[in-house]
Amino acid sequence: MEISLLTKILFSLLGLFIVFNYGLLQAGVMRKIVARVAGRYGIPIYQPYIDLIKNYSKRTQITHGVMFYLGPVFRFSGGIGLFFFIPMIYGSVYWQNFSFSGDIILLMYFQFFGMLGMALGAGEGGQPNSIIGISRGLAQFTAVEVPFTLAIISIAVQYDTLSVYDIVAAQQGGIQNWTLFTNPFAVIAGMFAFLGLMRHAPFNVVMAPQEIPIGPPTEYHSTYLGMLQSNRVVLHIVEAVLFMNLFFGGATSWLELIIKSFFIYFITVFIGVVFPRYRVDHTVRWFLKIPLVFGILAVLFV
């Protein structure tokens, strides 16, 4: 069934709205869970909304220059763009966004769009600690990309396609068809990469609070910070949806999507609560050891 471009745009925007709100709530829930693990009462789950409104409502603002100004725009474009290129709900023509423009390689490389813009913006901020954070982030990302790429190669070969939609399609028909069970090595490698991508402990030295005050966004505040926060919530959901599509059979309804992506994201939070922090050089080496082995196994036994 073909739908008009306008419908498509409207549904995509609606999807974005849903994801944005879900992301904010999910962030609240996750923080609540972390608080409960620590034995605290924790924030109200709508706290992310308040924080966001507060940041947008700041009265003063400074700018270090054009690139500093554009940094959050790049970052948020990266997040929203990634959302637009990922199919959300399997089987529905309305929730495919613009995923027909490219395939998983587009998604892999589009991740960098926001990162690069943010890095440049923070760079113009001139805070040396931001650049330390960026250098750590980029370094960590290179290592994370290895198992991720191997996992993607593996499932691309497994399903004979690079299209995310087709990969989801191939996993339909029961839980036994999920990549999780048909190609466990790829999933292990991929989920390791997911931990690195989400930057929870033990891989959160990039933004190490207090140490380098907060890494790349040290100079960002007010509306900029609001945009970065908005991006963060969208991006977390989108990344989780991507991994859901690749490894966990995708979703045929919003409910399924919310449940699955919640648990996928929860894995990183769970591990983050349990483990201490790695230094960057440890992270790089670690990703080139165990996850790499699983990645290689994944492409060898596909």
């Binding site: 947008y56 725009v73 948020f76 613009f98 423009s101 691309a156 087709d166 007010s222 509306t223």
Partner: peptide
């Protein structure tokens, strides 16, 4: 069918998102 790449489309989508967000930021701050 294995992989797809629609360069003009990607460019347009990213362009529109970017311009929208930029104008929003300009209004906000």
């Amino acid at each position: 069918l294995f992989g797809v790449w629609d360069a003009p489309n990607i460019m347009i989508i990213i362009g529109i998102i970017f311009v929208t967000l930029l104008s929003w930021l300009l209004i906000m701050s």
